[in-house]
Amino acid sequence: MKKEESKISKIKDRVAKLLEKDVSVFIAYERMPFELKDRLTIISSPKEVDKISVSPFMVGSPARMLLEIGGIDDGKIGIIARACDTRAIKQLIKEGKIKRERVYIMGITCGGMVNTRKLRSPRFENGRLYDHDREVHMKDVLYDTCSRCEDPLPVLYDEVFDVFDVFEGVSKADESTEEIEGDREKRWSYWMGEMEKCIRCYACRSACPMCYCTECLVDPINLAVSPFTSAEEKASYPRFLGKTISAEDNLFYHIIRVLHHAGRCADCGECERACPMDIPIRELERKMREVVRDVFGYDDDEIPFLAKLDMIPEGR
């Protein structure tokens, strides 16, 4: 669409401007050379802004990339963020992992990302999506996260670009699925059936912006050690999970992970997108979010108790 193209070139100009003096690097997306997908990239000079791509095919969480490069530079980091990414960044700031002053958030409105796994041979021309030669309505092939997005507008930003139109009828956030609310026996057999398929590749954990622990509770072997860790300490690390791949152990892993996201999950859907076996992990996270909101009355703007204490180390 001409409108979108001109918007994207405005974004590129703006990024180039920011890189001149306000920020030292910018996290954005670039089109992959052989397929219809945009992956994360780091722009460090105004000359590189031409490769920026903003489209419904962006994959990867910029908030996770922010944490990864946060320790390297001292300067300010610019970042393109959709609504869910801004929720993740907000949470990371709350947890003290990154300082607000270090990030320049360029929010963009988002209409949802297309799940290219549902298409065999996708082509995107003039704002229309084709699979082989048949036109496909983008609304029908969005990720489940996106078609049930709670709030498609950025919650935290330094400026906002209105890029995509939000699709109508897209927000079905209140609709609970059979898998989560239905009959108990059916729920159990449904989830155990899904957990049979899990191969414990840890893609969900690695893609999640909130899973930043260097010592993950479910990594079974040796946790982070240093030359000063004593032998007794290494010998007595608790082993919650081995590498046994059974439906029960996989469920254990996923439930521990989801519980550790209580009140923290940004609902970005990276976990489900990353999963190579198409397991609907996000359903568990959504239920967690519901419980936290409805049962505990926790609001996204509240600061969690522990973050108020001085024990949290200084953010980068």
Binding site: R39, L40, C201, A203, S206, A207, A274
Partner: peptide
């Protein structure tokens, strides 16, 4: 390696 997230997907599949 910027885009790699060190999961095990490529090796397991």
């Amino acid at each position: 390696s910027l885009n790699c997230i060190s999961c095990g997907t490529c090796t397991f599949l």
